[in-house]
Design a protein around this nucleic acid. Structure first.
Lengths: 255, 255
DNA sequence: TAATTGAGTGTAATTAAAACACTTTTTATA
DNA sequence: TATAAAAAGTGTTTTAATTACACTCAATTA
């Protein structure tokens, strides 16, 4: 019978015994949702998008955006759909985080949720609540969160952890800056997410940069992550600042 | 309506409109299973436990052990249950890997599977097929896999990747060796999983070892991972070999 | 007693990471 | 028009971590 259960996931034949006790059309199967942690960096702060719940349970409490998956839709597609509905953003970095499925996490029924992490550039986000039947949605500082519904606090903590470590060994930061940016701006992104000050010179050193004249750094092990542009941006009370862009705006492991 | 869907996962009230189109008791919701990648190192090889499918689809094809989750059971509990049924092992390292949910991954119906990684020590595993109605189960070399059902090959590749990187920055290897072992034995575990030869001296150097006399290495940043025992094991055609054990047999990040 | 087998051990060279301070450009102000 | 303010830009030194590398010792077998 141990085996019967195992097999049941895959086989229809030779499971008459099993089907007698477990009918795929039964209602006692879990619901599956996706929840999305949408991060952006704005106003020198790491922000996360939350929605305020309209009905019970946790009525009025802030929660992660999310929803049921449709039958024909991949998990990632479901997350992208929800994300687009909330922010208007189409192309974003999206990464599966973890699946939370404790029986008690939803007080009413068994809900298993696949959590996703999304990074969006502040400038890309459409102003909230623009012409929709949306519940109230707001950006919160990750460093000053309200009480959250369900186990969403744990999901957020997990997401921050993941973001912090991804920043160390990938180029994901490109999703949080506009096409062109100064090194100081990029450094701020890192400082805000890691919540620590970085040394300017060491920061620049760790980035592999292709300079404007030279076609390529000759080291095939360390392809450049950034490209220095010929352009500059006028400073405020100071000199002009060099602009950079990411060589490829697609996730890559660095080093 | 976008919001309605999102909310529906959480609210019962104020969803009369939603419930008209989506009934929680409907059959058009996905099934959720767990699949488990059970690794062990034996005979100088990295082995994974597979079962042979008894019914369609993929009848006769090898697949990962797994099965439906029960309603009152956490995902991890479901994985542990399946694992115990297959191997007889009770206490094991178990880690959630990733959730695979592409609509087409099961040809019959929508099945979302939460994949787990388990590590068991070769000596702990009960001989396969011992008194059960089990389908055929066998250990396969990770480096010589048969064709696999569903997307199980992708799951296995993902699991190997995860295991390889976990080995770099945690002490998970303790799950693959007996209580007491020689450094050479431990090194073999690493070599087999990383599929590369390691330098004996450098390997020993990277392990933090507490020596039998001394109570503690005085460096709080690098607490010892191994403890050298007073005991030795007689060698074959050579001298006696020192035995070691892991200081804590619980997952820990090292360095 | 000579050959075999694997354990056990240290140092030098290289690479990566961390610490650290002054000069330059521009704008605003005295 | 000289000076102060604000942030950009730029190298070197020190330290730590990683890599490469070879011989001796103990026990067993032939």
């Amino acid at each position: 019978m141990a085996r019967a259960k195992t097999e049941a996931a895959y086989s229809t034949q030779s499971d008459q015994d099993f089907l007698a006790t477990y009918n795929p059309a039964d209602y006692d199967r879990p619901s599956v949702t996706v929840d999305i942690v949408i991060f952006t960096v704005r106003e020198n702060d790491l922000k996360v998008l939350l929605i305020q719940r309209k009905g019970p349970p946790y009525q009025g409490v802030w929660a992660l955006p999310g929803g049921f998956i449709n039958m024909g839709e991949s998990l990632e597609a479901a997350a992208l759909r929800e994300l687009h509905e909330e922010t208007g953003v189409q192309e974003v970095y999206l990464e599966q985080l973890y699946t939370f499925g404790d029986p008690g996490r939803d007080p009413r029924t068994r809900v298993i949720t696949v959590a996703y992490l999304a990074l969006v550039e502040a400038g890309q986000v459409r102003p909230l609540q623009a012409g929709s039947d949306a519940a109230q949605a707001r950006w919160f500082s990750m460093y000053g969160l309200p009480d959250l519904a369900f186990d969403h606090r744990a999901i957020l903590d997990y997401a921050l952890q993941r973001l912090r470590s991804k920043l160390e060994y990938t180029n994901v930061a490109f999703q949080l800056v506009p096409e062109k940016f100064t090194l100081r701006e990029l450094q701020r992104i890192y400082e805000i997410i890691w919540n620590e000050k970085l040394d300017k010179r060491n920061f620049r050193k760790r980035l592999t940069i292709r300079e404007p004249g030279k076609a390529e750094l000759p080291d095939p092990e360390h392809p450049p992550m950034l490209e220095e542009l010929a352009e500059t941006r006028p400073g405020g009370n100071y000199g002009p600042t060099k602009l950079y862009r990411f060589v490829d705006r697609v996730e890559r492991v660095i080093k």
